[in-house]
Simulated assay, not measured.
Amino acid sequence: MLMRTWAALTCAVAMLTMTGCMAPAHMFMEVEKADHARSTERGMALLRQHIKTLQDQGDPMGDYYYAMANADGWIDEVKDPKAITALFEKAAAKGAMDARILLALQVATSEPVPGRLDYAMSPRGNVEAWEQGLAKLLPLLQQQCYARRLVVDEGRPQVAYYSIAYKVWPRYRDGHSIQNAQKEWELRLKKDAHKQEIWQSIDEGCNNVGGEYLDLIDQVR
């Protein structure tokens, strides 16, 4: 009872200043935001260190993760889309399967940069390129069904896994249409239950792939 009375008196006094009662909550939010920013910054520093360690070891995944980081924008040393694509090609030439997968997906989607894994994929009206890219992609996914990406999850650096077939089969379930110059919808990719089944089966077989946290990397100072 004493604590409630004291709290009420404190708030009553603070009302006179109009902001006193809200100050503790506001301060807590600011501290929380600052903590989140620091943990994210530290997580990204660990990811950069992880990339450098892999590159120093001659692991092609180091070049792949460097390409992905520039594509995602949290490393911005390379910005030109063609130059970023060249980074993926370099990693693929060294043996990074993830890079080969995303380059094939880039052909299918006609995207200027590989690796846009946060977005839905479509032919973007170019069905011929879509089919060509998927013809390259399918045998790769039969060897490895996912592509990896470095992320920070709640402040923790993580290797996230993405099922690539999941980006494909919904297009065959739903079809794909675009608007022409007259603002009319034109069907460019028909629904195809057989192709949907092929890609969806790959996706379903990829669901047991999880993420990996990188907390055991040497401390960044």
Results as ranks from 00 to 15, higher is better:
H36K: 15
K190D: 14
S163Y: 00
D98K: 03
W185C: 04
P112G: 05
R4C: 00
M29P: 01
K167H: 09
E212I: 13
Y66K: 09
P24Q: 11
V113Q: 04
P60M: 06
L103T: 07
T17W: 15
E154N: 12
T40V: 10
H176N: 05
A71M: 04
D98Y: 05
V159Y: 00
A45M: 14
V168F: 04
R188I: 13
Q219P: 03
L214N: 07
N126R: 12
V13R: 09
H36N: 13
A14Y: 09
R116N: 11
L140R: 06
P24I: 02
I198V: 15
Y146I: 08
G58M: 03
I164T: 05
M68A: 09
Y166C: 07
D203A: 15
K167D: 04
K190E: 15
A34T: 13
M22N: 15
F88K: 02
L105T: 03
M22C: 12
N126S: 08
G43H: 04
G95S: 04
G43E: 02
R156S: 08
H176F: 15
M22E: 15
E111L: 07
D118T: 08
A129Y: 10
V152F: 05
R4T: 10
A23Y: 15
T17M: 13
D35P: 00
A147W: 02
L47Y: 06
E111C: 00
K167W: 06
D98Q: 05
D98A: 06
P81W: 10
G155C: 01
F28M: 08
G175R: 12
W199C: 08
G20N: 06
A8M: 07
S163N: 12
G211H: 06
P24F: 04
G115M: 09
Y64F: 15
E30T: 01
D56I: 00
C206V: 09
Q182M: 14
S163C: 11
A135D: 14
C145Q: 12
L46A: 11
E197F: 05
E32M: 12
L54D: 06
E77H: 08
L2D: 14
Q49F: 07
C21M: 13
K183N: 15
E212P: 01
A34L: 08
A37M: 10
L187N: 11
N180W: 10
V107H: 07
R171V: 09
L54P: 02
S122Q: 09
G175S: 09
C206Y: 08
A160C: 00
A160Y: 02
R188D: 04
P112I: 05
K195A: 09
I164S: 05
H26D: 13
G62D: 10
E204Q: 15
G133Q: 04
E30G: 02
E204R: 14
H194A: 13
L87G: 01
L54V: 10
Q49W: 07
R116A: 14
A92S: 13
M121Y: 12
P114A: 03
E131I: 04
E111V: 05
Q158F: 00
K90E: 10
F88P: 02
E204C: 00
Q182F: 11
A91P: 06
L216F: 10
I217K: 00
P123E: 10
L16K: 07
